[in-house]
């Protein structure tokens, strides 16, 4: 064990990422990474890849634990109540961190930045704006806006559920462009897809990996990505922000520890995770899955959570989405 952690320390030194880490003996036993969804999702994939890597580097087992239930709330809540010693981490998503605490009101069991300590963002899962080409004549974002203005409340947009980034993306789009569509929520993206393909709903913002095969086959037409800038998977596809300034509606994931975890521990983890996210193999594997790998510091991740919480809070309040 000692040899392994020594080797890990040496390696990180060589990478020049974290000079302080020799100070702490962490980890001396198995570390649990909670994924608040069932096995097989995007978060689970990233967690398992990262766990394998951390285990190699830090010489202790990193075990992924899928705690489903409550739309991710149960898993995150469990971590907020765990000992802040670095042996319980969570890989959470946008909705867990920046939407649920606002959307579900005062009785909600955690507040992200009060109860959790960000370690680092690891991914962006870009949402893309697609239309069913048989139902909507527009092929560019400006045309779409004109079409929606001429036909208020005629277009239905589908989403993975009220309060998901897919839904909030649509709301943000309507609020920023002054258009009106009818929101049709589903239980997850894959439940929505058949209705989008058959034209029962005509428009959606959703994850690239899900939609791309259907865009390639011509069943759907992608108009733009919802990230601030164009994405690597198709540089010809504009960003919505090019037509609607400041538009950003993506899903992302990041690692967090319970609030109060010592800096030495989170710094060490942050260094390792950043190094892992910069490895060419990691980048290649994630990009194959349609996920944009991100390497960020705890401070950057904290800022992201803060700014997104504010943005979605505004959208939720303006759109009157919150339950009474």
């Amino acid at each position: 064990m000692k040899l392994a952690s020594l080797a890990a320390a040496g390696l990180s030194f060589a990478l020049g990422t974290a000079p302080v880490l020799a100070d702490t003996a962490y980890p001396t036993k198995a570390v649990t990474i909670v994924v608040p969804f069932s096995a097989g999702g995007t978060a689970d994939i990233i967690a398992r890849m990262a766990a394998e890597n951390l285990q190699k580097k830090l010489g202790q087992p990193f075990v992924v634990e899928n705690i489903g239930g409550g739309g991710g709330v149960s898993g995150v809540e469990k971590v907020t109540k765990s000992a802040p010693d670095g042996y319980t981490l969570v890989l959470a998503s946008t909705s867990n961190l920046a939407v649920h605490p606002t959307l579900y009101g005062e009785k909600f069991p955690y507040q992200t930045l009060r109860d959790l300590k960000p370690i680092g963002q690891v991914s962006v899962v870009p949402n893309v704006l697609v239309i069913n080409p048989d139902k909507i004549p527009a092929r560019t974002v400006p045309d779409l806006i004109a079409y929606l203005k001429a036909n208020p409340d005629k277009v239905s947009f589908g989403s993975a559920g009220t309060g998901t980034t897919q839904h909030l993306a649509g709301e943000l789009f309507m609020q920023k462009t002054g258009t009106q569509m009818v929101h049709i929520p589903y239980k997850g993206s894959s439940a929505m897809l058949p209705d989008l393909l058959s034209g029962n709903v005509e428009l959606a913002f959703d994850n690239v990996p899900l939609l791309l095969p259907h865009v390639k086959s011509g069943k759907l037409v992608a108009l733009a990505v919802a990230t601030p800038e164009r994405e690597k998977f198709d540089k010809n596809l504009p960003a919505v922000a090019e037509f609607v300034p400041g538009f950003e509606a993506t899903a992302w994931h990041g690692f967090l520890a319970p609030a109060g975890t010592p800096d030495a521990v989170t710094d060490k983890l942050s260094a390792e995770i950043q190094a892992f996210m910069q490895q060419p193999e990691t980048i290649k594997k994630l990009e194959e899955l349609g996920i944009t790998p991100v390497s960020s510091t705890p401070a950057q991740f904290t800022d992201l959570i803060k700014s997104m919480t504010v943005q979605w809070k505004e959208v939720i309040e303006k759109g009157n989405i919150k339950p009474q």
Binding site: A39, G40, R48, P194, P209, P213, L289
Partner: peptide, 28 residues
């Protein structure tokens, strides 16, 4: 053919496919 799981078991299978870098869909 569409990448749409019809029950929890299928959803787990889709997850497994994606882990292996395969996105089920029309081109599959």
């Amino acid at each position: 053919t569409l990448g749409i799981p019809s029950n929890p078991v299928m959803a787990l299978m889709v997850g497994a496919l994606i882990i292996h870098g395969i996105t089920p869909g029309p081109a599959f």
